[in-house]
Simulated assay, not measured.
Amino acid sequence: MRVLQFVPALLPHDAVGNIVRGLDERLRGIGVSTGIVVAGDRPPPGATSVRHTQLRPDDIVLYHLASRSPEGARLVARHPNVVVHYHNITPPELLLPWLPTDALELQLARREAARILRAARLTMAVSAYNADDARSLGARDVAVTGTLSRHDQLVAAPSTEVLGWLRADRDRRGSPHDWLFVGRLTPHKRAEDLVAALFAYRHATGTDAALTIVGRPASRRYLAHLRRRVSVLGLTARVRILTHPLAPRALADHFRAASVYVTASRHEGFGLPLLEAMSFGLPIAGLAAAAVTETVQTAGVLVDRADPVELAAAAATAAELGPRLRPAMDERLRAYDSDAAFARIVEGLRSVGLEVRA
């Protein structure tokens, strides 16, 4: 018996990819025979192509569902023992009018997801928000498992010269509160709202605060729009947009140097950077949308409207509360403990036939 994880693409520096690799390692650690299967005919190291994978009758296919994959859908259609790990698919309307082709792809992906979820024996979701979305698409037996996170490894990453440079720059400006956002630069993440909030914050407080945005852009057009917004508000020297992948040590230093983690995202199925921010003791301020509210709860300051002034006020309040939010952060980190999540995932796999040696 094997557990074969299917993911359309196994990408570096990708949240789903990290979960797949981490789960494969943990399953092998308890004696389970495993494999990672991807679409296409050029699998990365550690994976095999679905086109060259021979399924056995007793295999369990663990399908990581976050995007459309015709090859994955065909895999589900020909195998009776499929478990879905649902990571959520962004509602297509959130990408209009910026990325109409991507929005159409998401619409097709959600239709395909409905067929896959209805065929699955079990659906696992990292959050209650994702579980509800899966049910709305037709999933029947749904379990909330939590997620495997590597935030502890990020915290343990040694510092680099980046940290010294960031702190020296902040001290030179005399800024008490610098902001950080980490996430893909796509329209529904609304990084431009964070830029507007920074403008409001600087105007209201008179401080020379800065914002660092770390993320891969969804399109050149949207990135150009974001940079125009920064320029129009006169913040070119105070908003850093880092679009290249950062090594874990460099990313950790950005968390260490920031005073507040900010988000204006309209849609998150979970929000791993929120967990990473909490692991660094970084207070969170942002919009109470989608799974953000569930993930953060009382460990940050969330507002109901994406108004720049309200977001700025939330950031100021979060920074002021600072250490007083730490007990709530610690509680959220315990709630999303990776060992507990792994145990729940194994329990789900056992319910569909997985046998684990004692």
Rank of each mutant, 00 (worst) to 15 (best):
F181W: 11
P92L: 09
M124W: 04
N130C: 15
V301Q: 13
L251W: 01
A139Y: 05
H254N: 00
L154Q: 02
L122M: 15
N130F: 11
L246H: 07
I60S: 13
T212G: 03
R26T: 02
H85E: 06
M124L: 15
V3Y: 09
N81L: 13
R305C: 12
Q54E: 14
A66D: 07
T101R: 14
T186C: 05
A134K: 08
S351C: 12
S231E: 14
G215M: 02
V352D: 09
A314I: 02
A318C: 01
L311M: 07
L62H: 15
A39L: 04
A285S: 00
T48N: 03
L275T: 08
V262C: 10
P80Q: 06
L302S: 04
A39I: 04
E192T: 00
A289M: 00
F255W: 04
A252F: 04
N130G: 15
D141M: 03
D24T: 11
E347C: 02
R140H: 09
L96D: 09
G234P: 00
F255G: 01
R167I: 13
A218F: 09
T295M: 10
A328S: 01
P176K: 10
G234K: 06
A131Y: 06
R135C: 03
V162M: 00
V83Q: 06
V296S: 07
P158D: 05
W165P: 06
R221C: 13
V162L: 10
V76W: 08
S231N: 10
I60E: 12
H267L: 12
L166C: 01
R173D: 10
R173V: 07
G353N: 01
L274N: 04
S69Y: 06
G138M: 05
G215H: 00
S149H: 11
P97T: 09
V126Q: 14
A343R: 11
L251H: 08
A197I: 03
L137H: 00
R344L: 12
L117H: 13
A291N: 00
F199L: 15
V84A: 14
T207Y: 03
D132Y: 01
S127E: 14
G146C: 02
I30P: 12
F199V: 11
V32D: 11
E25C: 07
L333A: 07
R2N: 01
A299S: 03
A264S: 12
D58S: 15
A139M: 09
R305L: 10
A197F: 10
P45W: 13
Y129I: 02
G234Y: 08
M278G: 04
T160W: 04
A343V: 01
G215A: 10
A197L: 08
T145F: 02
D171K: 13
A47F: 08
G138W: 09
S127V: 06
N88V: 08
V3N: 07
R190V: 02
G29S: 12
P45D: 15
S159H: 01
H85M: 13
T48Q: 10
V239F: 03
D253E: 11
A247E: 15
T298P: 00
L287M: 03
D171T: 14
S159F: 06
D58R: 14
A340I: 07
P323L: 08
L198F: 13
R332N: 05
V309Q: 08
L96Q: 08
A200M: 10
A315D: 04
